[in-house]
Amino acid sequence: MKRKDLLKAAFDKPVTDAVPPGSPLAETARVPSGAIRAMGLSLNRIEANAALAETFAEQIARGEVVQELDPLLIEPSFVDDRIDRTSDPDFRQLVESIAASGQQVPILVRPHKGKPGYYQVAYGHRRWTACRELQRNVKALVRPLSDADLVIAQGKENAERRNLSFIERATFAAHLESQGFERSVIQSALAVHPAEMTRLLAIAREIPKSFIAAIGPAPRAGRPRWMELAALLADARARERLVAIIEEPAFRKVGSDTRFDLALTRLRATKAPADAPFTFRDAQGRAVGTAEPTAAGFRLLFDLKLAPGLDRYLLENLPALIAAYESP
Rank of each mutant, 00 (worst) to 15 (best):
E27Y: 05
L73G: 04
Q67K: 04
F56T: 14
R82W: 06
I74T: 02
D81Y: 11
V19W: 05
I46S: 03
N44E: 14
L69H: 04
M39V: 09
L52I: 09
D88M: 04
S23Q: 06
V19H: 04
T28H: 14
P76W: 02
I74E: 00
E68T: 05
V19Q: 05
A26F: 10
F78N: 07
D80N: 15
T28R: 15
R62N: 06
G63V: 03
A57R: 06
D17Q: 13
E47S: 09
G63R: 02
S87P: 09
F56M: 12
L52R: 07
D17R: 11
A57S: 10
E47P: 00
I60F: 01
A57Q: 07
V79N: 01
P76S: 01
P71Q: 01
G40D: 03
S23T: 02
L25Q: 06
E27W: 05
T16I: 09
R45D: 09
P24K: 15
P14C: 00
P71Y: 00
I46P: 00
R30Q: 15
V31I: 15
A35I: 09
G63T: 02
T55H: 08
S77Q: 02
R37F: 10
A48G: 03
L25V: 01
P24Q: 11
A18H: 10
L43W: 00
L43N: 01
P21Y: 06
L72F: 08
D81E: 11
E75A: 10
V15L: 14
G40W: 08
A53G: 03
R30S: 11
T55A: 14
P14I: 00
A18P: 04
E58N: 02
T55P: 00
V65K: 06
T28Y: 13
S23A: 05
N44W: 00
